[in-house]
């Protein structure tokens, strides 16, 4: 039973559910819109003063908004009693993790696109100056958030007070993604250059947590 088919099936099912029940996308979109609007109002007028802070603020916004999406990512399973369906796959359950993480990754990339548009409109961020670099940082950062986030979302789905617990569990672990991505995004927008090493550290982070998620998920789906 090829695991890749299982991962692909899980990913497609999650996207189909997202398209059909749209509340996850709606929550994230509205929340991001509100916060960017608040930022544009409260940030000081002069662009160069705000300029240095905007990348960091955008990444913090992405992290906070992704919590809404991640908290919902296993809701469909627990409501439908379908955790058993996922746990009953005839291959390593790590593939289910990859499918779920893939669906969350796509959701986060869509969110990033939306936030980028908002930032361009409200915070007049000129993305064209950054070009592919900003997109690359976004993708690597989203993968990091999706892998750690999916694993911790699965952990906290059956635990009391999970709305409180998921952020507490997640934030210390994703601090590296936040810090590195904020710096690399700032650099791509013309900020002070950062050593190339940090692209490697970000890539290594993603690789390590996708692997851990894969190997550990067998136990996580067992209740």
């Amino acid at each position: 039973m090829s695991g890749a088919r299982v991962a692909w099936a899980v990913l497609r099912k999650d996207l189909l559910l997202d398209l059909r029940s749209r509340d996850r996308a709606g929550h994230m979109g509205v929340f991001a819109f509100l916060v960017v609007a608040l930022l544009s109002i409260t940030l000081p007028e002069s662009p160069e003063a705000a300029g240095a802070w905007v990348p960091a603020l955008l990444w913090i916004l992405l992290l906070l908004t992704s919590i809404l999406g991640l908290a919902r990512s296993f809701a469909a399973e627990s409501e439908a009693g379908a955790v058993a369906t996922l746990a009953g796959v005839a291959c390593d359950r790590g593939w289910v993790f990859l499918g779920k993480a893939g669906a969350n990754l796509i959701a986060l990339l869509a969110l990033q696109l939306w936030v980028a548009v908002l930032a361009a409109v409200f915070l007049d961020v000129r993305w064209e100056a950054a070009g592919w670099r900003a997109a690359a940082v976004g993708a690597l950062g989203a993968l990091g958030l999706a892998s750690v986030g999916t694993l911790l979302a699965a952990l906290s789905v059956s635990v009391r007070a999970r709305e409180f617990l998921l952020p507490v569990l997640l934030f210390p672990l994703v601090l590296p993604v936040l810090v590195i991505c904020a710096r690399l995004t700032a650099e791509s927008l013309g900020g002070d250059p950062t050593p190339g090493l940090w692209w490697g550290v970000l890539g290594l982070y993603d690789w390590v947590f996708v692997l851990i998620g894969y190997f550990v998920f067998d136990h996580v789906l067992e209740d």
Binding site: L151, L155, L173, L175, P176, L178, V201, I212, V216, E222
Partner: peptide, 25 residues
Amino acid sequence: RTFTAVYGIVGTAAIPFVYFAVDLA
């Protein structure tokens, strides 16, 4: 027990990255 074991592993794996990231910041 399973979940705390998993978080202990994930938490420890993150520590070196935290050190690098704080060094950058």
